[in-house]
Design a protein around this nucleic acid. Structure first.
Lengths: 341, 341
DNA sequence: AATTGGTTCTGAACCGTTACGGTCCTTTCA
DNA sequence: TGAAAGGACCGTAACGGTTCAGAACCAATT
C-alpha cells in the first residue's frame, strides 16, 4: 500500500496499478500525513514563535522582512512554515505543545516568555533570533549594542548632548511612559535593552548624565506610538536637540510629531531610527540598517542544517550606519560646545 | 499518563504529582503532538496554498493584507497557520500531501494548478479565494468583473476611448508581451480574466474595438513590471489617453514610466490601478479598493466554522471605486468627443 | 454480610503509516 | 537436476498518544 504511493520501484507496475485502482474505488484519499509523520518522525514543517499577535507579523516591516527570509529558506528545503499562535496576553502555551514541527524559530520574544520556555522543553532543534545567547540553542542576531553605540557616536560628533529617546516595549507589561534606569537595565527584550545600553554607554562617555535623559517607552509599535512618545519627551524637555528612536517606525512617527510642532528636521531637531526599512529610506532617515531578510534566511538555514555536531552556533550579522538627512548639528551647536563639558 | 497532563480532574492530585515527577525524571518531554493529532484527528492548523513562491506572500501588499486577516481568524480560533511550499515551477505536489492540517485555504492560484487539484483530493474542508466557484468547496472573493466595469465606466465618462492595459500573468507560462483576445479569454487566473472581461465589456459598449486595445501581460508582479508593461503599450500606441493596470503595484510602476517619459498624470495620461493598497492611496491613485484583510478573515472564518450543514458557501465582499488624482479627462478630450463614435 | 454506588486506577484497543524481515516464486548457473 | 540468488509480495510490529471499558477499592446503605 504505502509502497504503491511512495516506492514505485518496490513493486511491479501491474500490482501498483491494481492497488491504486482499488484504493480509488474505495475512496481512499491517499496516505494520511499525520500518521506518516508519526511513523517517520518528520513533520515537514518548522514552527515560528513571535512575541506578538500572529497578525503583527504582517504589519511590522522588519518582521515581514524576517519572515520573507525565513520563508525563502523553508522553500529551499521544501519545508512548511507553521505560524504558531502565541497570544502574549495569555499564558497559554498549549499551542506550542500542539505544534507538529521539526524545529522552532523564536523571534524576538521577551526573555521570560512562557512560550519560549515551552519551546525549549520540546526535544527539537531551536534557533532564537534577536534574543540573548542561551548557550544551548542556535542563535542569530546583530550587535544591537555596538550598532547603537556607533549611531550615538555620530550624534555626539555632531555636537548633540541634550537628547531624548523613544523606545519599544521593554517588558511584557504595558508601560506607556518614561522609563527608569532600573527598568532599562532589567528590560526583558534583549534588543531594546542592548540598544539603550549602547546609547547610555556612548553618551556617558561624552559626559552626559544618562539618568537625566528622558526615555519614553511605548507598548504598541506603530507611528502613532512614535508620535506620542516624541510628544512626551518634547513636553518634558523642549530643549533637546536630538530624538533617538529605537526603530524606524517610531522615528517616522516622531518626525510626524516634529512636523506637527513646526520643528524642522534636522535644522531644529535631529531624528534617528533603527532597522533600515523602506519607508525610512524614502524619508532619508538616519538609521542603522540591519539585514532583516538575511536574518530570517540565516535562522532557517541554521535550523534546517542537519549537521548536529556543530551546535549550538551563534551568528552575528553585520549592520551599517546610514547617515541620512534627518541628522545634523544642533541649532547653535557650535556655541554650545564651547560651554559644554 | 495522558490524564496526568490533560485531565487533572480524572485522577488524584497525589498520583498526578507522582506521575509528573517520574516523567520529568525520565526526561519525558510531554505528549508528542503528532501522535496526539493522529489519535484525535485534529492537527490544530490550517494550510495556506499560494500560487507563488512562499516568500512572495511577504512581498506583495495585497497578499500581506490577506495573510494578516487570515492570521487574525486563526488566532481567534487558536489554530496554527501552515504556509505550504508550492513551487509553481515544479509539479511536485508532495508538499500538499505531506501537510498535516485540518483544512486548506487556497489563494489565487491558476484554475489548472496541480497543487489545487491535490488539495481538492484531500478529505478536509477547503476555502478557495479569488478563484472561480467550484460548487464543491467554500469560496470567498469579490466581483472583479463588475468592479472593473465600474472603473471603466468612469474612464469612459471622462471621455477616454483610446486606452492601453497592463495586466498580471494570465497563465502558468511566462508571457511578457501582448495578449491576444484568445489568451485573455482562456486565462487560467480567475481574477485577471474577470478584470479584463469587465474592461472589454464596458469599452465595447462604448464603441471601442477591444481587439485593437493593446494589453501587455507581465509574469512578475512588481513595479518594474508595471513600468516595462506601460512602456511596451506606449511604444505601440503613443496616442493612448489612459493606462489601465489590473493592480496598484503595476499602476505605480506605470506612473514611474510615465514620469520617465515626461508625461504628466493625469494631464497627459490617466493611470488607474486595482486593490487599494497603502502606497497607491498615498500616490492618490484612482483604483478599486477591495477589503483584502476582510477577505483573509472571511476565508479563515469560513474554514474554521464547524457548521458543515451549510457548505458549500460563497461570499462576495464589497469593493469601492476610489477616484483619485491620477484620472482625468483626456487631453483635448472635449473636442475628441465630438468626433468620437 | 451483602449490595449498591461512586471514585480512582489499569490495561487494551485503536488511529494509519512505514520499516523490516520472511515467504514464495522465478531465474540462473554449475 | 539441484542449489543459490534475486525479485516480488505480504504480514507484522512499532511510532506515541487517547479513550473507554472494566477492575479494584472504599464508603454508605439495606
Amino acid at each position: 500500500m504505502s509502497n504503491a504511493y511512495n516506492r514505485p520501484d518496490q513493486l511491479s507496475p501491474e500490482l501498483r496499478r491494481r492497488v491504486l485502482d482499488t484504493a480509488r474505488r474505495l475512496g481512499y484519499p491517499g496516505p494520511d500525513p499525520v500518521a506518516r509523520s508519526l511513523r517517520t518522525r518528520k513533520a515537514g514543517a518548522v514552527g515560528l514563535l513571535l512575541t506578538e499577535n500572529l497578525s503583527y507579523a504582517f504589519r511590522d516591516p522588519a518582521a515581514i522582512g524576517f519572515l520573507e527570509g525565513l520563508a525563502l529558506a523553508c522553500e529551499d528545503a521544501g519545508t512548511g512554515l507553521l505560524l504558531v499562535p502565541a497570544n502574549p496576553e495569555r499564558e497559554d502555551v498549549a499551542s506550542v505543545h500542539r505544534a507538529g514541527v521539526d524545529g522552532f524559530v523564536v523571534y524576538s520574544v521577551p526573555d521570560d516568555d512562557p512560550h519560549l520556555a515551552a519551546v525549549l522543553e520540546r526535544p527539537v532543534p531551536t534557533v532564537v533570533c534577536d534574543q540573548p545567547d542561551l548557550g544551548t540553542v542556535d542563535r542569530v542576531g546583530i550587535d544591537d549594542r555596538g550598532a547603537m553605540y556607533e549611531l550615538a557616536k555620530h550624534l555626539i560628533d555632531l555636537g548633540h548632548r541634550r537628547i531624548g529617546v523613544v523606545c519599544m516595549r521593554l517588558a511584557r507589561d504595558r508601560n506607556d511612559g518614561f522609563v527608569t534606569p532600573d527598568r532599562q537595565h532589567a528590560a526583558h527584550f534583549h534588543v531594546q535593552r542592548n540598544r539603550l545600553s549602547g546609547l547610555a554607554e556612548a553618551f556617558s562617555e561624552a559626559g552626559v548624565d544618562w539618568s537625566q535623559v528622558p526615555v519614553a517607552e511605548r507598548f504598541d509599535h506603530n507611528t502613532a506610538s512614535g508620535a506620542s512618545g516624541a510628544a512626551q519627551v518634547l513636553d518634558r524637555d523642549p530643549q533637546i536637540t536630538a530624538l533617538i528612536c529605537t526603530s524606524d517606525v517610531l522615528a517616522l512617527g516622531a518626525m510626524n510629531e516634529a512636523a506637527r510642532r513646526g520643528l524642522r528636521v534636522p535644522h531644529d531637531i535631529t531624528v534617528t531610527g533603527f532597522d533600515g526599512i523602506r519607508a525610512g529610506e524614502e524619508a532619508g532617515l538616519t538609521t542603522v540598517r540591519q539585514p532583516v531578510l538575511e536574518k530570517g534566511r540565516a535562522a532557517g538555514k541554521l535550523l534546517l542544517d542537519t549537521n548536529e555536531r556543530s551546535r549550538p552556533r551563534s551568528v552575528n550579522l553585520a549592520t551599517e550606519l546610514i547617515i541620512g538627512k534627518t541628522s545634523g548639528p544642533p541649532r547653535g551647536g557650535a556655541e554650545e560646545r564651547w560651554f559644554g563639558p
